[in-house]
């Protein structure tokens, strides 16, 4: 049974300047234990899709089952089984690394002692041990991102949804994150859905890619299959062919800064 299955999942925002069709109808199936890369240009609807799958945003059409539960009818059951790291993170500047990690464990139902122990484990896994008693505004961008990730892993969710988890990470931290994602899958069978703009990352990490553009799925398959289908040497070329963006911009307006 798939861990995510959606049918015609859609979200239209109503704004002062009329409706914005952010996601126009996505059909998606994710198998348990899969690492799925969700790719697409800026504004394609990746974040909106993830926000729907995490129960944060009610869909305006379509249906989805996530981790065995209907998204709309039983959001509480979905929340217990998933972990989410938002594109822009979610740290309170009034807290420290430790207090945020402990608070997150408590929000997922752990008792005080368990949450404190889990905070230490997560800090060790993500290289934050030295920083445990640092206030969150005093972290560097990449350190903050690693804390965001630790928060999403707190309750060992069976499904992890990561929105651009590696943006802002140095090459070493990025490699560590890839290793961590693979280890979660191999040791715990965790399913991971992640968005990224780094195509080398998608190529190296994902079993399967889903490319969305203008709110719909425009291609899917393994990195190798996508490259083969478009006669492309790199995933970058395949991506540009699929999304119809030429390799060189044809913009003729002068640069204004």
């Amino acid at each position: 049974m798939p861990i995510i299955s959606t049918a015609g999942l859609a979200r239209t925002f109503t704004t002062r300047n009329g409706p914005v069709e952010a996601v126009r109808g996505i059909d998606l199936t994710v198998r348990p234990g899969e690492i799925l890369g969700l790719l697409g240009p800026n504004g394609a609807g990746k974040t909106t899709t993830l926000r729907m799958l995490t129960t944060l945003l009610p869909p305006t059409a379509g249906a989805a089952t996530v981790a065995g539960h209907d998204l709309v009818r039983d959001p509480a059951a979905v929340r217990r089984r998933i972990g989410y790291v938002a594109q822009s993170g979610g740290l309170d500047p009034q807290e420290t690394v430790r207090s945020e990690l402990v608070a997150q464990g408590r929000l997922y139902g752990m008792n005080r002692a368990r949450a404190a122990a889990r905070a230490e484990e997560l800090a060790a896994d993500l290289g934050l041990t030295e920083l445990l008693d640092r206030a969150t505004p005093a972290l560097s961008g990449g350190q903050r991102r690693r804390l965001d990730l630790a928060m999403g892993l707190t309750h060992r969710p069976e499904l992890l949804l990561l929105d651009e988890p590696t943006t802002g990470l140095d090459p070493g931290s990025r490699a560590d994150l890839w290793a961590l994602v693979r280890r979660l899958r191999d040791e715990y069978g965790t399913t991971v859905v992640l968005t990224t703009h780094y195509l080398d990352e998608a190529d190296a990490l994902a079993d399967r890619l889903v490319i969305v553009d203008k709110g719909t799925v425009v291609a899917e398959g393994s990195p190798a299959a996508l490259k083969a289908a478009h006669g492309a040497a790199t995933l970058q070329d395949a991506f540009l062919a699929i999304t119809g963006r030429g390799p060189t911009p044809v913009d003729t307006t002068p640069v204004a800064v």
């Binding site: 129960t55 944060l56 938002a86 979610g90 740290l91 929000l107």
Partner: peptide, 16 residues
């Protein structure tokens, strides 16, 4: 402010 920091959504994703 919590909404701007992303803290509000972070909490709403938990089963709290």
């Amino acid at each position: 402010m919590e909404k701007n920091w992303g803290v509000f959504d972070r909490m709403r994703v938990t089963p709290v």
